[in-house]
């Protein structure tokens, strides 16, 4: 048992009357949201403990250093398996966190300032967004938040409420 299949979201099997359904933790919460908020929960996410210095196994994956020994990789959902394989190495602990983290994309620095005291010019960073530990990435005015999926509804409520106040 080298791979922890039960952690992955791309190892389900259809057949025998079963058709597993991936359900985003934000599915209900974002039902009423406008186009400025996007659900990124399905993105492939792999956390690595250990050295990834020389790793160049999957060029398309985005790399977010969390601590010197911890790195988060983001990739397209269908690339997750390849990414896991490429990262596999006895010196590393590779954990598929696709199902662990909900993802949310939103626009506007002003909105983010209502949610977090992180330095928005110093991203990516991990910090408190709406009092939940969140990985925050920025591309121009676009922000991506990754946070524990069990807070998805709570987070969506706060984000939509804050947006309504602007």
């Amino acid at each position: 048992m080298s791979e922890l299949e039960f952690l992955s979201t791309d190892r389900t099997r259809t057949g025998g009357g079963f058709e597993p359904v991936f359900r985003s933790p934000l599915a209900d919460a974002l039902a009423a949201a406008g186009p400025d908020v996007r659900d990124l929960s399905a993105l492939g996410k792999v956390e690595v403990r250990g050295d990834v210095e020389g790793f160049d196994g999957l060029a398309s994956a985005e790399r977010i250093p969390l601590t010197p020994g911890r790195t988060l990789f983001l990739c397209a959902p269908e690339e997750t398996a390849r990414l896991r394989e490429a990262l596999a190495d006895p010196s590393r602990t590779v954990v598929d966190v696709t199902g662990a983290l909900a993802g949310l994309e939103l626009r506007g620095e002003r909105l983010l300032r209502r949610l977090t005291d992180l330095d928005l010019d110093g991203l990516p960073a991990v910090g408190a967004v709406a009092r939940v530990t969140t990985i925050v990435l920025r591309t121009g005015e676009e922000f991506r938040l990754f946070f524990p999926q069990e807070y998805a509804r709570s987070m969506a409520e706060v984000v939509l409420d804050a947006a309504a106040g602007l």
């Binding site: 969390l66 601590t67 911890r70 991990v126 910090g127 939940v132």
Partner: peptide, 11 residues
């Protein structure tokens, strides 16, 4: 003293 970065890197 010891500190844990609970709402951050969790280290």
């Amino acid at each position: 003293e010891w500190w844990f970065h609970r709402l951050g890197c969790e280290a």
